[in-house]
Write a protein that binds this DNA or RNA. Sequence first.
DNA 1: TCTGGGGTCCTAGGACCC
DNA 2: TCTGGGGTCCTAGGACCC
Length: 397
Amino acid sequence: MSAGTALTPILHVDMDAFYASVMTRDRPDLQDVPVIVGGGYRGVVLSANYLARRSGVRSALPMTRARRLCPEAVVVAPDYPTFETVSASVRENFRQVTPLVEVLSLDEAFLDVRGAGRRLGDPVEIAERLRSTIHDEQGITCSVGVAASVSVAKLASRRAKPDGVVVVPPDAITSFLHPLDVGELWGVGEKTQAMLHRLGLITVGDVAHTPVRTLQRALGDHLGRHLHELAWGVDRRVVSARNVGVFGGGDPDKSMGAQETFGRDTDDREVVLREVLRLAARVTTRMRVAGVAGRTVALTVRFADFTTITRSRTRAEATDVTQEVYATATELYDALGLQRARIRLVGVRVEGLVPRSSVHRQLVLGEPEHGWSDADRAVDRAVGRFGKAAVQPASLL
DNA sequence: TCTGGGGTCCTAGGACCC
DNA sequence: TCTGGGGTCCTAGGACCC
């Protein structure tokens, strides 16, 4: 193993145009045409292949604009179960390299291969072997960034795209980072980039050579310090198999929610509340499967002009009961006192989740012994046996 | 037919408590 | 009593990520 790569044990593996690659891999007819994954009414682009990107199509772009930019593109609806399957197989490939895998999303992960060197070779050899395994088994390509820290590895993988590997040795970190636009840094989005540009800070090098106090005044204590450190390649964040977010085996979720954009805007309270009930049922069903309950219920309302508000209320005790979440969300909605406001989207979220086993409910005087909670569990059993369509709250029928 | 859905984290003000 | 101050909870909003 060369001394250089032994000092760069962090891999960031990122599938290339993941959704688009998966949707087209078994479709010879889609190999040489621009492809956009997304669609649906009022939707956005989830992913686009490299031919479509050449026309300026990017993820999160409204579909209407994407079609205008690339009218010849084939639009394909996403197939999430297949994405999950492919993603699980790839994660298994990762775990054969090291147990230190931090899954960021369906198509991205950090690997710490510090302990794998003797067995599997240096980090670059490991990266290349993973790439060919994934290509052979899944028929899709990925790119890998190799560096001493997660933030630099993440930037390196972007440079490696598509279908490549980029290594940033420790002595090349600042020469790699400093020419990049500040917007490339992980955690700098549109707003922060614009703010930094207004201050005349265009490149990562500009940020590196700005006093921390100045950055903190503009961006707040935390972000200011954080960006200054990132600009010098200082990143104490470690690859943690615990931080796996939505996927199994990691830290539990802190909140669960669901939201839905209406096919067309509505000002009808009945229509909105029927959707709120549907969302409350969806969320609490997931909570009961996960064995969690939460005290805070948050309602999101987005109006026709895209302004978005949230209102939340913390209940005395944690709940996973559909009717209780629905009741709180309804109170929050009615407290808005809306008069004919055009509503585009509603969302329901339950926060402050704790294991259900840690919740001991006070018996409220007059509360039926077998109340809504038992009703929910009966619904869950029926859904488990007969499928989602079998049981719905009465007002959804 | 402009702008999805699932999350996390940070900030800031006010209440409240010691 | 020339009004301090810290810690925690709650709420609302905003930025960001994939």
